[in-house]
Design a protein around this nucleic acid. Structure first.
Length: 427
RNA sequence: GGAGAGUUGGCAGAGUGGUAAUGCAGCGGAUUGCUAAUCCGUCAUCCCGAAUAGGGAUGCACAGGUUCGAGUCCUGUACUCUCCGCCA
């Protein structure tokens, strides 16, 4: 959410931001601003009525018995008029709120400008793309060869886009999370395991609603949703609080099962572990002061941590600076990390690192008291993947495979796999 | 699932239907000076206003209702705690 005063005072800048993000058909600034001015007028006039009514009410106590009936009648009359005006105000306010909930964050002036993913910019590529002296297998073949999965059987039980993994691969998945959680803890993060069940409100707080209802599992019997990321839960964990500045920054390493309907991805990545309905994610989430230099610093730190994760996993990757048209509504700036997938001969997303500035905090009403001036301000929030599995297993087992189908385990991961240097049926 | 108790500001904590006490912390200011203390103001959102002048509206978990007037009375909902039952 944006500040309406900011929008009014910086109309041209905001319009430019809308253009860059591709929201010109969704948001009409003139409508929004005229709604706001009509709301302001209604507020002014209804408040004058409320003031008069309060004065009348307060005068009753000291009025004589003869005076009272007239005052009460007058007050009742005013009350009716006030009620009507408040209903009018409420209707206008609802229209206004609906538009404001769809108002995207403004992109950073440093963001590449582009209409869609074609406008994303590769910032750097790290690591050597593996060259195989044999014909490498794709991850599904490796799973079959090593007895690591039950992909066909589980589809009959749980439906398409689900996965069941076995033996070393199942433990490898958990090992990755353990490794990343340890790393985040060493960076000062609070490890927190959170539910995957969410009420509706946090979805608005995160900014997933009202944009993408189709993507979310909904359980009508209990009126709850399944979370697609721990970011959803962590973003609302402190909602409506006024945090003491001394507590900031708050660093969460959230772990949770995640659920996504993948409604918009029909036909994409239907084979294997890349795009499944349920997965596990360790998430980095930061709440910091309302200072763009500080949140940009944290954005870089989060990016660096996830690069370290891929380096520890010894995976070649590239860093993308996501362009204005490909960023989601909540984002001010976004970097994606993509790891190399040999079978697809391209990089595939493993991490998504975003600075949301105060856009989410305005929705969750999450503030802190700034010690410098004693003022209450909205915090900045940031999020990044720590590791998401089984997606990350795909580049991992494909890049580290040997000719016999076994998979090498990088040094940093071995402590989490009982010291194994290699996994597979033939090991 | 059943019964009961509760939810007031950043925190703590009063509040017989008639203007939300008080303490602590934070912020601003004043005063006295030995590692601090005291006093005053401020300390949630919004509106009028050029205003950092001064007014005003709203805010006691949320949503309604009764009333001239609701933190207080009534109804519903959420959450927390205690006990019982059932289950993993």
């Amino acid at each position: 959410m944006l500040d309406i005063k900011y929008i009014i005072e910086n109309k041209e800048l905001v319009q430019e931001g809308l253009n860059k993000k591709g929201y010109t058909k969704i948001i009409n600034l003139d409508d929004l601003i005229s709604l706001h001015s009509s709301i302001t007028k209604l507020k002014t006039s209804s408040q004058a009525k409320a003031e008069e009514k309060n004065k009348l009410s307060n005068s009753i106590k000291s009025a004589s018995a003869e005076e009272r009936p007239a005052i009460i009648a007058k007050s009742k009359e005013l009350g009716e008029a006030l009620k009507q005006e408040l209903e009018e105000l409420d209707a206008e306010q609802k229209k206004f709120d609906e538009i404001m909930l769809r108002m995207p964050n403004m992109p950073s002036p440093d963001c590449p400008v582009g209409p869609d993913e074609s406008g994303n910019v590769v910032i750097r590529k790290v690591g050597e793309i593996p060259q195989f002296s044999f014909k490498p297998r794709d991850h599904v073949e490796l799973m079959e060869l090593n007895d690591w999965g039950e992909m066909e059987r589980i589809a009959k039980v749980s439906g398409s886009r689900t996965y069941a993994i076995k033996n070393d691969l199942a433990q490898l998945e958990l090992a990755m999370h353990m490794m990343v959680l340890d790393k985040l803890r060493a960076h000062g993060f609070t490890v927190i395991a959170v539910p995957s069940i969410s009420k509706e409100k946090p979805l608005y707080g995160q900014g997933y609603l009202p944009f993408s209802r189709d993507e979310i599992y909904y359980m009508p019997a209990d009126d709850v949703y399944l979370s697609g990321t721990a970011e959803l839960i962590l973003n609302s964990l402190r909602a409506d609080e006024i945090i003491n500045e001394a507590e900031l920054p708050i660093l969460y390493a959230g772990f949770s099962p995640c659920f996504r309907r993948e409604a918009g991805a029909a036909g994409k990545d239907t084979r294997g572990l890349v795009r499944v309905h349920q997965f596990m994610k360790t998430e980095q989430f930061v709440i910091c002061k309302n200072d763009i230099n500080e949140s940009e610093k944290w954005h870089q730190t989060l990016l660096k941590i996830s690069e370290e994760v891929l380096q520890d996993l010894e995976l070649p990757y590239q860093v993308l600076d996501i362009c204005t048209g490909d960023m989601g509504a909540p984002k001010y700036r976004q970097y994606d990390l993509e790891a190399w997938v040999p079978s697809q001969n391209c990089y595939r997303e493993t991490h998504s690192c975003s600075n949301i500035t105060e856009w989410q905090a305005r929705r969750t009403n999450l503030r802190y008291r700034d010690n410098a001036d004693g003022k209450v301000k909205y915090v900045h929030t940031l999020n990044n993947t720590g590791i998401a599995t089984p997606r990350a297993l795909v580049p991992f087992i494909e890049c580290h495979q040997n000719e016999d189908g076994s998979v090498n385990i990088p040094q940093k991961l071995r402590p989490y796999l009982g010291g194994k240097t290699k996994i597979g049926k033939n090991v």
